[in-house]
């Protein structure tokens, strides 16, 4: 018979984690939920508002447009960074002198802080002084990120690809080098083509790391804030205003706590739902 020993001291060991989680996740989340169902006035006056803010956000054209923009951004990012990252990983050497060199070069962009990346690319894209902007203009493309929405998007996506493709590369590379040589030997004896080797050996063996890469890139790109904010400030107009930028505008710019809180929760649920769907789909056939 299993007998449960009660020992109150056990709580002492759990307490630090409980406190940490309480302060950094649970209490803030509760505060947000609290704001999202109330109308706030000056002098700390709050009134019950029910699901009014949620209705308002869901029906607001502004939110829908921002969500669409955000979805589009994330889609493009994933569509570029994943194949590109895998392709780069495939071309990297598997042993020898160049391995550490390549790895360090690949890791460099990941080490740059977000706001620095934004500032760097802001200067890089200046039409008269920036290397990118001036070069493009030199080639006859009237490139100006601050007035042309297309140019702004182009720069924003290029920046994100520069900053984060490395993550996909490093993860894919880790997956690739863990494949034993014997698999490649078997394929050579069968006479399998390069494409078959990729399709039937490398891709299945990279599946787990690619799952993680997709999840990380999805979550990160969906809640991206600093880089596009520093780069374009959400402009020109609202053309590059992504969800988090809009959220900050409503919450801290206009101090509409209720709508901002409701929007945060909707935002949070979207990220959570999509991550869960991705994860479930990608690990569906795995015997665990």
């Amino acid at each position: 018979m299993a007998h449960k020993t009660e020992n109150p001291r056990a709580w002492l060991f759990v307490a630090p984690v409980l406190l940490l989680v309480a302060f950094n996740a649970f209490i803030p989340l509760m505060a947000v939920i609290n704001y999202s169902v109330q109308e706030s006035f000056g002098n700390n006056l709050f009134f019950w508002h029910g699901i009014g803010w949620f209705e308002q956000i869901m029906n607001s054209e502004r939110f829908q447009a921002t969500l669409l923009r955000q979805g589009f951004f994330t889609f493009i990012i994933l569509a570029i960074e994943l194949p590109l990252g895998v392709a780069i990983a495939l071309t990297m050497p598997k042993k020898g002198f160049w391995v550490p060199v390549c790895l360090v070069l690949m890791a460099l962009p990941l080490l740059v802080p977000w706001n620095v990346v934004g500032a760097m690319w802001n200067i890089f894209a200046l039409p008269d002084l920036g290397l990118l902007g001036a070069t493009l203009n030199g080639f006859g493309w009237e490139y100006n990120m601050t007035s042309d929405p297309f140019d702004a998007w182009f720069t924003m996506i290029l920046m994100d690809v520069w900053h984060w493709t490395s993550l996909v590369v490093l993860l894919s590379y880790a997956g690739l080098v863990s494949i034993p040589d014997a698999f490649y030997q078997a394929a050579r004896i069968d006479g399998a083509s390069r494409l078959s080797v990729f399709r039937f050996i490398e891709l299945p063996k990279m599946k787990h790391v690619l799952t993680i890469a997709v999840l990380l890139r999805f979550m990160d790109s969906f809640k991206i804030y600093t880089e596009p904010f520093v780069l374009t400030g959400g402009g020109p107009g609202n053309s590059t205003t992504l969800l988090s930028i809009d959220l900050v505008k409503i919450g801290l710019g206009q101090f509409d706590l209720g709508p901002a809180a409701a929007m945060s929760l909707i935002y949070f649920l979207i990220v959570l739902t999509f991550s869960w769907i991705f994860y479930t789909l990608m690990t569906k056939n795995d015997p665990m």
């Binding site: 014997a182 078997a186 050579r188 039937f200 299945p204």
Partner: peptide
């Protein structure tokens, strides 16, 4: 090359196409 020699190789590790 190996594929032109009409040979088979079975390795100590169980090597099959995973998917």
């Amino acid at each position: 090359s190996p594929q032109k020699r009409n040979i088979s190789l079975v390795h100590q590790f169980f090597i099959n196409y995973p998917n």
